[in-house]
């Protein structure tokens, strides 16, 4: 399950894993920064903290105590802010760096070769940029699309790249970033903020008092509309999280089957392995499609919500 969730260390192969920095802050103990290897895979305590079921907890025991028998300080644990560079944060930083490298180099090509045909990486990126611009932003938002294009493009490529990185089983891929609810929460929250900040009179009027609807219906409709305002980004968050996580769980389940059958007999294990492998390959192909579709769906729905917020009233 660690492969779907988050870890304080990046498992590379066998018993080797890359230790990642632990960053903790509490008003009582101040800031502490140390390597996750100090925890010795959750077996030892360090600096008054221990790893407990993947979570960092504050303990009362001195360094090097067996973490499994340490006494957990519940109050202090709740008061501790954990901003450690976990596997997902590391993957996030790697993907951010990749995005910056890819798109700034592509942008350089555009300024260097103004008005000329695209080359190299430009060819890979341009159709997708055009797709997001024309089929997502322009079609959903209308003529005011340009203001929101940077967010939509960034969101699209961020989700798409991380979906793809999530499919790569080896370092630096393999983190289930877009299948993590914290990540989709932030993305959905940004969409929500953009929609709410840019909502015009027309938009608010429709939410608070739908025109042409009798008063007693409004009493029902207005709460529903207000609920819908929050429900939309919530659904955005859940959809991306669930889709990507589901893909990872299925792939993991197929591989687990091999070992489950392998436990009973080696032959069954090998037999199931063939089927599992084939199914996983099939799932991978499906997931490649899902990687694009979910990035598209998230961006398109964000654009739709923004479009509804900035839409000018139609004069019927």
């Amino acid at each position: 399950m660690g492969h779907i969730g988050d870890e304080h260390g990046w498992h590379l192969w066998g018993h080797t894993s890359l230790p990642l920095p632990i960053i903790l802050y509490s008003s009582e103990r101040g800031l502490s920064v140390f390597s996750s290897s100090r925890f010795d895979h959750g077996h030892k305590t360090y600096g008054g903290y221990a790893l407990h079921d993947g979570h960092i907890v504050a303990v009362n025991d001195p360094d090097g105590t067996d973490a499994h028998h340490a006494s957990i300080n519940e109050d202090l644990t709740r008061a501790t802010w954990d901003i450690s560079i976990t596997k997902n944060v590391m993957s996030l930083l790697v993907s951010a760096a990749l995005l910056l490298i890819i798109f700034i180099s592509v942008a350089k090509a555009y300024t260097r070769r103004t008005g000329q045909a695209p080359t190299g990486l430009q060819n890979l990126v341009e159709p997708i940029v055009l797709f997001v611009r024309d089929d997502v932003a322009k079609s959903a938002i209308g003529h005011k699309y340009e203001r929101f294009l940077p967010y939509l493009l960034t969101a699209f490529f961020f989700i798409f790249l991380n979906n793809l990185l999530g499919l790569v089983p080896i370092f630096p891929g393999g983190a289930n970033l877009t299948g993590n609810i914290a990540v989709t929460l932030v993305l959905a929250l940004l969409t929500f903020i953009i929609v709410t900040v840019n909502g015009n009179k027309h938009y608010w009027h429709h939410i608070l008092a739908m025109p042409g609807v009798p008063g007693w219906v409004l009493a029902i409709l207005t709460p529903v509309e207000i609920l819908g305002m929050f429900l939309k980004p919530f659904v955005l968050m859940i959809r991306l999280f669930a889709n990507i996580t589901a893909g990872h769980i299925i792939a993991l389940s197929f591989f687990s089957l091999i070992f489950v059958f392998g436990e009973t007999s080696a032959g069954a294990g090998y037999g199931v392995a063939v089927g599992s492998w084939a199914f996983t390959v099939f799932m991978m192909c499906l997931e490649l499609l899902v990687a694009f579709i979910q990035a598209y769906v998230f961006t398109f729905l964000s654009a739709m919500y923004i479009g509804a917020a900035v839409e000018e009233p139609h004069h019927h």
Binding site: L100, F103, I104, V106, A107, Y110, R133, E146, P150, T154
Partner: peptide, 13 residues
């Protein structure tokens, strides 16, 4: 990206 990538890319396009 908005400053160093999208602006030149979209302008270029």
């Amino acid at each position: 990206l908005a400053k160093f990538a999208w602006k030149p890319i979209l302008n270029g396009l």
